[in-house]
């Protein structure tokens, strides 16, 4: 079946393509500017499982024809984003500008995604990782640009060894991926500049 056929049963995208995208963009900007602090937005969005509405909203605002997208699932969720974003779908994680990870426990290594180059660090991938849950004010200690002293956050459902890999990613600066962690309809920014310790 072609994409356009499957879309006959397709859930709608953002109600107002311009203004909703702007609101979501602003939200993601805030999340990235203040790492470790979760933000949320009221959005009437009902994407197919296993997409969190926040993940879907971020994709609809950020992903387009010029940014290949990689998803760890096929089927309705992939078709939904493919259709509404009008983006090319990356066959391998390394080819993606944006990646959606719905099953964090089974996610590829961070190094599998584009790290950018020293000349063009902005070409690295941005990962949208759906975690199991978030708790602020406890857990890991985050420091770095955008954080006055430190913030603490606990993120459930990430694979073992994730934070060691994150330390490697941080050390690559100016290269390295950026991440947006999504759980419970909220999103937390984790740019490559953020240092994370136990």
């Amino acid at each position: 079946m072609s994409l356009i056929e499957t879309s006959s049963k397709m859930a709608p995208g953002l109600a107002d393509a311009v203004f909703d995208s702007q609101r979501v963009f602003r939200l993601v900007l805030d999340a990235m500017a203040r790492p470790g602090r979760s933000v949320a937005l009221d959005l009437d969005l009902d994407p197919p499982a296993p997409l969190d509405p926040m993940t879907a909203a971020a994709c609809l605002a950020l992903v387009d024809f010029e940014t290949p997208l990689w998803l760890d699932v096929q089927g309705a969720a992939a078709d939904y984003l493919h259709f509404h974003c009008g983006c090319p779908m990356a066959a391998r994680p390394g080819e993606a500008a944006f990646a959606v990870i719905t099953d964090a426990a089974a996610m590829p290594e961070l190094g599998a995604f584009s790290q950018g180059s020293d000349e063009a660090p902005e070409t690295s991938a941005t990962l949208l990782i759906q975690a199991q849950g978030l708790a602020e004010g406890e857990g890991l200690r985050l420091t770095g640009p955008g954080i006055e002293n430190e913030v603490r956050i606990r993120i459930d459902g990430l694979p073992p060894g994730f934070w060691d890999r994150w330390a490697d990613n941080h050390a690559l600066f100016p290269r390295g991926v950026d991440a947006l962690i999504v759980a419970d309809g909220r999103v937390v920014g984790l740019p490559r500049t953020t240092r994370v310790e136990d």
Partner: peptide
């Protein structure tokens, strides 16, 4: 002018 839309192929 022709395009190959992502939606049609």
């Amino acid at each position: 002018v022709e395009i190959v839309p992502e939606e049609l192929g």
